[in-house]
Design a protein around this nucleic acid. Structure first.
Length: 275
DNA sequence: AATTGTACCTGTCAGC
DNA sequence: TGCTGACAGGTACAAT
């Protein structure tokens, strides 16, 4: 489910709503959702949220105790802040009871996601965050940086879609936004990287930045499960031009959108606009 | 080196 | 109605 815009939306919500709140207790509904030192949930009691960061599709929750929580929502994870009496979804895996009377709940139907406790004083590096590619929306990530990144792959015959999905190449893109970016840039998802002309590579950069920023403005894309931290759906679904629109006319040229499989993922594109 | 298949889970939907 | 298989926003790993 959640790609960069969705995780960023949740991060902003929690930064606004949960910083300063203290954890009163933790309820573990499904132990598999908790990674890291197993015994460690009790130590979270009394800790206060001081910050919510994001790296690629991961959320990093910082506590005043020095402990941190790394959250990956994978396909179906949700993180919502609700008042205590709110009915508990059957897929709720972890509940943080807060001093405000609210609860931060981790809900994950498919159980792929996780919350990992990173203890203060433990290893300095977080393996999950090592080796990630650059943040596409970082202020310091320029068009030149993008060209340099691609230049390092110019001999590669892998498909451009597979490269953009590779988190070690660039962080935060997923199946929806890669399809949208390639449509906007007019590049066929199956094009080998080595075949891309300079102009095509240059065109992907603004497409990527604009689409991700617009998606954050609309609070992400909801197909079925994703909601922001306040339980609201994202509005970017209406703006999607190809993803989930097989058979519908391309907004740019009217040709029906096609769906194929690329890099093992359902892939939507316009056969006229993308070559 | 890169792709494909498989696995992790649960749910939905199309087709028969 | 009910069964079966394909598919789903992610990623790690093994096999090819």
């Amino acid at each position: 489910m959640p790609e960069l815009p969705e995780v960023e939306t949740i991060r902003r919500d929690l930064e606004r709503l949960a910083v300063g709140r203290t954890i009163v207790s933790v309820d573990l509904g499904w132990p598999g959702s908790l990674k890291g030192p197993g015994a460690g949930l009790n130590r979270l009691r009394g800790a206060r949220f001081i910050g919510f960061k994001r790296r690629a599709k991961m959320l990093l929750i910082e506590l005043d105790s020095g402990d941190r929580l790394l959250v990956h929502l994978k396909m179906s994870g949700r993180l919502i802040l609700v008042s205590a009496p709110t009915p508990v979804d059957k897929h709720t895996r972890l509940i943080f009871v807060l001093d405000s009377g609210d609860q931060l709940r981790f809900i994950d139907m498919r159980k792929f996601g996780y919350v990992k406790l990173i203890e203060s004083g433990g290893a300095q590096t977080i393996p999950e965050l090592e080796g990630l590619g650059p943040e596409p929306l970082a202020p310091g990530f320029s068009a030149e940086d993008w060209l340099d990144l691609l230049a390092a792959k110019k001999e590669s015959r892998r498909t451009i879609k597979s490269l953009l999905l590779d988190q070690s190449f660039i962080g935060g893109l997923g199946n929806i936004y890669v399809d949208e970016i390639l449509h906007s840039a007019g590049v066929h998802p199956q094009r080998p990287v080595s075949s891309l002309r300079t102009g095509e590579i240059e065109g992907i950069y603004p497409a990527m930045r604009e689409i991700l920023m617009a998606a954050i403005e609309r609070r992400g894309t909801t197909f079925s499960l994703y909601v922001d931290a306040e339980g609201r759906r994202g509005d970017y679904l209406d703006r999607l031009k190809v993803y989930g629109r097989r058979g519908e006319p391309c907004p740019a040229c009217g040709r029906p959108i096609e769906k194929i499989k690329v890099a093992g993922r359902g892939t939507h594109f316009c056969p006229r606009c993308q070559r």
